[in-house]
Design a protein around this nucleic acid. Structure first.
Length: 420
DNA sequence: TCTGGGGTCCTAGGACCC
DNA sequence: TCTGGGGTCCTAGGACCC
């Protein structure tokens, strides 16, 4: 046993609950919150679930039936949800020694060493409700995975009154057989299919599995899962948020796009938004991927393309990034398709303006030669002297293909779309 | 001239999460 | 006509080097 006690607390139907806080008339009524463009349902109250509305149901398909049944639909308001999330976490911090904010509506709490974790969880839950208006459920366990399972049970079993305690092995033995393996955190559709095919149907079955066999079937992720279900800690709380690895802005269009200029305009606005995010975090990126594709459900020929632009120096400059994105889009463009979605992703993030020339020497012994060559290229493109940002990039710069290219290199690819 | 093995880095793609 | 928008981690395989 780890001796640790973790709690997972999350807001019930969080987005819907936030809407109810500011509009109490919605209490007791079936409520759903819709995604961008009011595309589909992304949050549902129990009353809405009882009417058969599924996660991800397209609004245009269920609108008639839902409104007739008295369902209230709201467009999403992420500023509001973010603010409510902050308030809820402020309450958590009064009860837990440490808090890891896992998502907008879920946090892992460290209750290790507390005399009565379950009693504390009940009190915390009541306080959150009283101070913020948000109903929550809490799961307790010696590992994060068991705390997740406990939280799942707390939500599903009304008799538990919103708190499920799986810290004791006896409770684990009693309850794990009642949890379907697909409901274990980390077991998705593909893994669930593999597991049930060999007769592993419940969380208890998975717990009893040979860890090596789990690794063979599901890689290290599966092995860790088995150990964590047995109460052996594999992942502790992450108290300092890890630095971001990528920034993405992607959108479905409200209607299909068939015109290049329209697509360019959309992509430019996504790039501008991505640049804003970049500067907000004080970061820069030299690795941009742009993609667009037709709708998965739409009529007409399918097409999905993407292209990467490697910028010479890491940038967060909107004009520069839009120029690169425009080149990629033009090269990928083909008429005759009804494009439904596009996006831009920035990877290889690093602090803006970080300049450490000595890294280059470590990576490539032909430093002098390389520096001279890169300097020439940079001057030719009006970029002034070379400012290498970090080691990983020097490799890319040093290839011959990159030397010949103008401000950036592009790589394009097309992937088939699977049609149902 | 012929030949192999090991290490590292990078990339694409799958799977999963909320 | 209309079906979300972010993220992370892991692995396999190729390129490259010694």
């Amino acid at each position: 046993m780890s001796g640790r006690v973790f709690a997972l607390s999350d807001g019930n139907s969080f987005y819907c609950s936030c809407e109810r806080v500011f509009e109490p008339a919605l209490n007791g009524r079936p409520v759903i919150v819709l995604s961008n463009n009011d595309g589909c349902a992304i949050a549902r109250t129990p009353e809405a679930k009882a009417l058969g509305i599924q996660m991800g149901d397209p609004w245009f398909k269920i609108r008639d039936h839902a409104t007739a049944a008295g369902v209230v639909a709201r467009s999403s308001n992420y500023v509001l949800y973010g603010d409510m999330s902050r308030r809820v976490n402020d309450v958590y911090r009064r009860y837990a020694r440490d808090v890891e904010i896992y998502s907008i509506d879920e946090s892992f709490l460290d209750f290790t060493g507390d005399a009565d974790p379950a009693g504390q969880a009940r009190e915390m839950r009541a306080t959150v409700r009283r101070w913020t208006g948000i109903p929550t459920c809490v799961g307790l366990g010696p590992t994060r995975t068991l705390a997740k399972v406990a939280n799942h049970l707390a939500k599903k079993r009304p008799e538990l009154a919103g708190v499920c305690d799986l810290t004791e092995p006896a409770r684990q033995d009693a309850l794990l057989p009642t949890v379907e393996v697909a409901d274990v955190w980390g077991v998705g559709r593909a893994s669930a299919a593999k597991l049930t095919a060999i007769g592993v149907m419940t969380a208890a079955d998975l717990c009893a599995m040979d860890p090596r066999a789990a690794r063979g079937l599901l890689t290290v992720t599966g092995e860790r899962l088995v150990l964590e279900l047995r109460g052996i800690l594999c992942q502790d709380l992450e108290l300092t948020p890890p630095t971001r690895k990528g920034i993405a802005v992607t959108r479905m269009f409200g209607r299909p796009i068939t015109d290049l200029d329209e697509l360019l305009e959309a992509v430019a606005s996504y790039v501008a938004r991505a640049g804003e995010k970049l500067r907000q975090h004080g970061l820069a990126s030299a690795d941009m991927t742009v993609f667009f594709h037709t709708g998965a459900h739409a009529a007409g020929p399918p097409r999905s393309v993407s292209g990467r632009a490697a910028l010479w120096t890491p940038s967060s400059d909107t004009t520069e990034m839009i120029a690169a994105a425009t080149v990629v889009v033009r090269r990928l463009w083909a008429p005759g398709f009804r494009y439904a979605k596009a996006g831009v992703m920035l990877d290889d993030l690093m602090p803006a303006g970080s300049a450490t020339g000595d890294l280059l020497a470590k990576v490539d012994p032909r430093r002098e030669q390389l520096m001279a060559a890169l300097d020439q290229v940079n001057r030719r493109h009006g970029r002034g002297a070379l400012v290498p940002a970090r080691a990983g990039l020097t490799k890319r710069w040093s290839t011959k293909a990159d030397m010949r290219s103008p401000a950036y290199t592009t790589r394009l690819s097309e992937t088939p779309i699977a049609r149902a």
